[in-house]
Amino acid sequence: MSSKADYFARYEAIAAVSERMLCAARDSHWNDLIGLQDEYRILVDALKAADGGIRLTVAERARKFELIRQILADDAAIRDLASPCMARLSALFAGTAQPSRVLQELYGAR
């Protein structure tokens, strides 16, 4: 990785996408959330690939941990918002649910 500025820019980009994901989940914009998950994954993979040997001061470590804390808090909030939807989907697809009933339940299809 070229510099500490690049290193922190990567973490800040992940935190920004994480915040946008939380906003999408709060607004029940699940398709937007899926697209943002792809962007998030790409950023995390790029950070993993570039993370190499950056030595951080105590203050820089604190900054890094605050960004990680924010990302994890957003993730937990997203999971809390998505859990009821996932439970409904599981219940709809479990057992003998008719596909047309599942669609009606999910989308209000008639």
Rank of each mutant, 00 (worst) to 15 (best):
L43W: 09
G53E: 07
I54T: 13
L56S: 00
L56N: 03
I54W: 12
A13T: 13
Y40H: 12
A77L: 12
K64S: 04
E39C: 11
R101I: 12
Q98A: 10
L81W: 05
A49Y: 00
A24F: 01
K4E: 11
R41F: 13
C23L: 10
P84K: 06
S3K: 03
L103K: 10
G53R: 10
M21N: 02
R69P: 04
W30D: 00
V58Y: 07
R110A: 12
M21A: 05
M1Y: 09
R55S: 09
R20S: 09
A97V: 15
A77F: 12
L22W: 04
A109V: 15
D51V: 08
A50R: 06
A87G: 04
G35Q: 10
D45F: 09
A24V: 06
G95Q: 00
R63D: 06
S18C: 02
H29K: 10
S90V: 15
L36S: 01
L56D: 00
D75L: 11
I34W: 01
A62I: 15
L106M: 09
I42Q: 09
D74W: 11
A13S: 08
I14N: 02
A62E: 15
I54V: 15
D38N: 06
M21V: 08
Q37N: 13
W30R: 00
Y107P: 00
A97N: 11
I68H: 04
A13N: 07
D51M: 05
P99Q: 03
Y7M: 05
V58L: 15
E66Q: 10
Y107W: 09
V102D: 02
G53T: 10
R79L: 08
S28F: 10
A77P: 05
V17K: 06
T57K: 05
R79Y: 07
D38R: 13
L89G: 02
V102I: 15
I71H: 07
A9W: 10
R20Q: 13
S83N: 03
A50P: 11
V17H: 03
L92K: 03
P84N: 01
D38S: 08
D6E: 14
E60C: 05
Q70T: 13
D32K: 01
A24M: 03
I14A: 02
A109M: 15
I71G: 01
D45P: 02
E39Y: 05
G52W: 07
M1G: 09
S100D: 13
S18W: 02
G108W: 01
I78E: 04
Y40E: 08
R26T: 10
Y40N: 02
F65V: 12
R110K: 14
S90N: 14
A62S: 15
R101P: 01
A91P: 07
R61P: 04
Y7I: 03
D75V: 12
A94L: 02
Y7E: 02
Q37T: 12
L67P: 09
D38M: 07
I68A: 03
M86H: 06
A76S: 13
Q37K: 08
Y107D: 00
I14R: 02
K64E: 10
D51S: 05
E66L: 08
A50W: 08
E66H: 08
I71D: 03
P99D: 05
A16Y: 09
A73F: 13
S2L: 13
V102T: 08
K48M: 08
R10Q: 14
V44R: 00
A87I: 15
E12V: 04
R41G: 00
D32Y: 03
T96H: 12
R26Y: 04
A49H: 04
R88P: 06
A76P: 07
R20I: 06
